[in-house]
Every structure is written in C-alpha cells, then in structure tokens.
Design a protein around this nucleic acid. Structure first.
Lengths: 125, 125
DNA sequence: GTCGTTATACGAATGATTTCGTAAACAAAC
DNA sequence: GTTTGTTTACGAAATCATTCGTATAACGAC
C-alpha cells in the first residue's frame, strides 16, 4: 500500500465528496460538482472511471447503478500531499510552513488553545 | 498584483533556484536542474522563456547572456499555494492541517518553543 | 575574416488531464 | 412491445506541461 498516490485536482474534488458523503453514485457526485463548477455528467463519470482504473476508488457494479467509494484514506492522502507540498514549496521546512499558515489564518482563541494543547501532548511523549 | 499565480511543478523548481541564488543565467539554473534530474539545457531554457511570458520571472536581455530573476515574491507565492492546498485538501480547515503537519513531523523542543512564542504573539494583537 | 563554442528562438512531439459527444444497455411507463 | 429516460462505455477533442531537436545569432580565438 506504499503507493505513490497523486490524485489530480479534479480527482481530489471527487475524493473529497466521497470522503464526506461515503459511498455514492456518479449522479450524487455529479450534482455536487455541477453546483460547484457546472461540469457535465459524463465528465464526472469519465473521471470516476479513470479513478477506478487507477485504484483511487472502489466500486460495486452488481446493480445497474454503480456505487463508488474512496479506496484511499483521507488522512493518508492529506498527509502525502502535505508532505510533498512542504518539500517542494517550503524546502522541507515544516515549521516555517506552520508559522506561515498560522500567520495567514486569523485564528480565534479556541483554536490557538487547541494547538497549545496539542503541543503539550507532543512534548509529553 | 492580485494575480492568480499558479506555477507548475517545473516552474516552482526554477523559482526555488532563483529565490536562493538571486538573478541567474539559464546556464546556472540548468546546472542545478541537471544534477537534480538530468534534464537538458534547452528544456530549462524553454521553461524559463515560458515563465517570462507568464510574468513569473523578469529578465535583463541587454547583454547576450540573459539574466533571469524571480518576478514574484517567495513568501507571497508560498502563501498562495499553501492557502489553495488548505482549501482543496483540507476543506479550508487550517487548524486541522497544522495539527496534522505537526503530527507527521518530529519536532524538537526548540521548534515547539518557537511555535508557542509565535502563538503568544498572535494572541497579543 | 573563419571556426568552434555558447547563447537564444522556434516549433513540434509526447504525455497527462479535462471535457464532452455519441452509442449502447437497461429499466420503467405507457 | 415501443417509447422515454437514466446509466455506463467508448473514443476523441482541447488544453496544458514537459521535453527536446534544430535553427539562428553572437562572441572569442586564431
């Protein structure tokens, strides 16, 4: 499973929908995408078929209406993309990236507190 | 200047080199890239010309050997890519992304301390 | 000047991603 | 059974990124 997952932009949009909604039909996914960016039904279908070929999604084709499901974990995929981004954009410097993320984002006190708690946890180990 | 900058993978590699080395010739950039991935001289040249067309780099062509320089700021570009990544991969949830980044990365005490200080600063404002 | 070297310019091939038109399969309604 | 609508399958066009071959121009050494 040590795959080099690299979903494209469009594939990621679909994965996000599947992660959120769980196993879904093409139509369900398409309806979200149509609202978001007005793409056509067959476009979504084709993308999902390609994703199936690549192993990014599983599908149950026992009935006429196929049910698609994400085949890769959200956390793992996020982690992989994140790590790559840090490498290519921040020269591997995670801390610099975190600082900048915190700087851009207007965090409210609760969020800051959550991070502090998390830092404590890391430190304990 | 509120551009929708979106350097490709290859363009980003070149930008990183230019940010690090400052204004450089194609040859200089090429030599780094050749070591890193064995690409050819004209490949680098073409990419840099495209980047010039797109406005990603400036160049001084007053002498035979053109001098290229990044036209977009490192911080700004990093911030833009980061924000987009958070949006598409983490559904806009910066905090979740930060937590995950900290979790993946084995931070040493000094780094943790730096973040705490930074959190304090944010809070003061 | 001519020759060899190094530079830029141009165009085209390749491959990946995204998009969609059209066909075929199927089911439900009539 | 025929029509209508929904679904999947197939293939091809359009776009973009990457790569490189070849042409052309400029410079320095001789």
């Amino acid at each position: 499973m040590a795959d080099n997952i690299k979903p494209t932009e469009g594939e990621l949009e679909i994965l996000n929908i599947l992660w959120e909604k769980g196993p879904s039909t093409v139509r369900t996914v398409h309806e979200v995408l149509e609202k978001a960016k007005g793409s056509g039904y067959t476009t979504t279908l084709k993308l999902m078929q390609i994703m199936h070929d690549k192993g990014l999604v599983k599908r149950d084709s026992s009935s006429r209406v196929h049910i698609y499901e994400a085949a890769i974990s959200k956390i793992k995929t996020q982690g992989q993309i994140l790590r790559k981004m840090v490498d290519t954009v921040f020269a591997g410097n995670t801390m610099q990236m975190v600082i900048q993320a915190l700087g851009n984002h207007k965090a409210d006190p609760a969020e800051l507190e959550a991070i502090r708690k998390y830092l404590d946890e890391i430190e304990k180990k």
